[in-house]
């Protein structure tokens, strides 16, 4: 998965238009990235990539780039 595909996938999870998400988009600008949205995200990460987040990952999820970094670290994102 490349970065554009990853952004489109995340946009689908958070019910945003694909073009509205950029790596620098902060969490608080994404309405559906709330406490329930995190559960959906975690379920999707687990189901699609078998990725389970670590406590540090969860504490440090402040913007879209942080999610891209998780995907990259688990080999699910082709480095730019």
């Amino acid at each position: 998965m490349n970065q554009n595909e990853a952004l489109a996938w995340l946009a689908g999870i958070f019910e945003e238009s694909p073009e509205s998400l950029r790596p620098e988009t902060p969490r608080d600008e994404i309405a559906a990235w709330d406490s329930l949205g995190v559960l959906t995200l975690m379920a999707e990460l687990d189901e699609k990539f078998n990725i389970q987040l670590e406590a540090d990952d969860m504490e440090n999820m402040k913007k879209v780039q942080d999610l891209l970094a998780v995907l990259e670290r688990h080999g699910a994102l082709t480095p730019a």
């Binding site: 995190v38 559960l39 975690m42 379920a43 687990d46 389970q52 406590a55």
Partner: peptide, 10 residues
């Protein structure tokens, strides 16, 4: 909640 869900799926 997120931590518990994470624990559960692991």
């Amino acid at each position: 909640g997120a931590g518990i869900f994470n624990f559960t799926i692991k």
